[in-house]
Design a protein around this nucleic acid. Structure first.
Lengths: 206, 206
DNA sequence: ACAATAATACCAACCAGTCGGTAGCATCAT
DNA sequence: ATGATGCTACCGACTGGTTGGTATTATTGT
């Protein structure tokens, strides 16, 4: 928190560059050029490339937490509809270029999960922290509407994260977010079915 | 098809090494050492690293298609239960080390989608080909059981692929496949709910 | 003055790709 | 048959450029 402004600028740059090129292909010089910094300055703020990755993961987590914490859907009182609001919100931010809305954590995990355990663990903690926040709404909704259900709030929350991560991969494969949005609509539908939300009538047009 | 045996050996090695370290971090020397080949030999069979990646994507697609084509669930006649058999099969192969069951296409897409369009397109085609095969069973099941439903077979098929890909990311984050299996159970449950498969009784133990 | 911060110059290791060459095998003219 | 020819598969030293990281010096804020 309350980082040095230059450090924050480097981290913001890292979020974008790493999401564009992946962790390994991102060079420290890339970050330096894109953030208007020199190598000497970079190594004053970070011990090395792996240190940057770990800090970037936490920075990304902070940014994401902040984004959802202040999203308009948070004012919904019913936890089930707040959960659905979360899904709708995640759909609504599938805009702009792919590096803008894809997940740094998923990107880095894919390449370094075996070679850089420290980065893997940092990403894992950020994902778990985010999943926990979603899980608290899931737990409230479950307790209120489906207290007997056999699935766990944590498990459903991880499923939600899996669909999000998988949607990003399909978006990257396709070059655009349309398929991703459709996948998240299926996720929304699943939650509606799980909680037995009344479905709108299938209108047969005259 | 019917590659030179040495070329096949290199490709098999590439599947494992790239899934372990990612595309960028994999060096041609890594592949050569692991496959008992020299650099000269490698460049006799491949034009370069990107050429290897594209061939490896197709090789992975062939391997995966072959795997599901001969899986036991294919003998199920009802397309809906064959579809559920597919999910169960995907759950059942979440065994061994992560590089053995994770997806090369998703791994490579995450890092190179923007920097190597040719690799992105090769991965995209393999995913689409696989999704199409699943979609044909989805379409049969839909026509038979839910012909009025508003969702499309292709869309649901992509959703299935998204959950699979996202599950692999969570498995990498966690260092094991347990969470992934739980996510795929939610996917199975979604399909059961979509098709209104009768759910087993929630037995209250005496 | 004196930290904190940033810039410059530099290095050793590494990596994709090249190049000249060899071993083995098939073809074919004589 | 046999030797000349050429083709495929393979080898391994080498190169030019890149990369993560360091050592040193300069600037800035207080």
């Amino acid at each position: 928190m309350a980082h040095h402004p230059t450090k924050t600028r480097i981290l913001d740059t890292a979020l974008h560059v790493i999401r564009s090129k992946g962790y390994t292909a991102t060079t420290i010089d890339d970050i330096c050029v894109a953030s208007g910094m020199t190598k000497g300055g970079f190594f004053h703020h970070f011990n090395g490339k792996q240190d940057l990755a770990i800090a970037a993961a936490q920075h990304f987590g902070d940014m994401a937490d902040n984004l959802v914490a202040h999203a308009p859907y948070q004012s919904i009182e019913d936890p089930l509809f707040r959960l659905l609001g979360y899904i709708d919100f995640r759909i609504s931010i599938l805009k702009g270029s792919l590096p803008q809305f894809t997940c740094l954590l998923g990107t880095m995990l894919q390449e370094v999960y075996e070679t850089h355990p420290a980065i893997r663990e940092a990403c894992n903690q950020c994902i778990n922290a985010h999943a926990s926040k979603v899980a608290s709404d899931v737990a409230l909704a479950k307790e209120y509407y489906m207290p007997q259900a056999s699935w766990s709030a944590e498990g459903l929350s991880y499923h939600i994260q899996a669909v999000l991560q998988g949607s990003f991969i399909l978006a990257k494969a396709n070059g655009g977010p349309q398929v991703a949005a459709e996948c998240l609509q299926h996720l929304r539908h699943y939650i509606e079915l799980l909680f037995e939300v009344p479905q709108p009538e299938e209108n047969e047009l005259p």
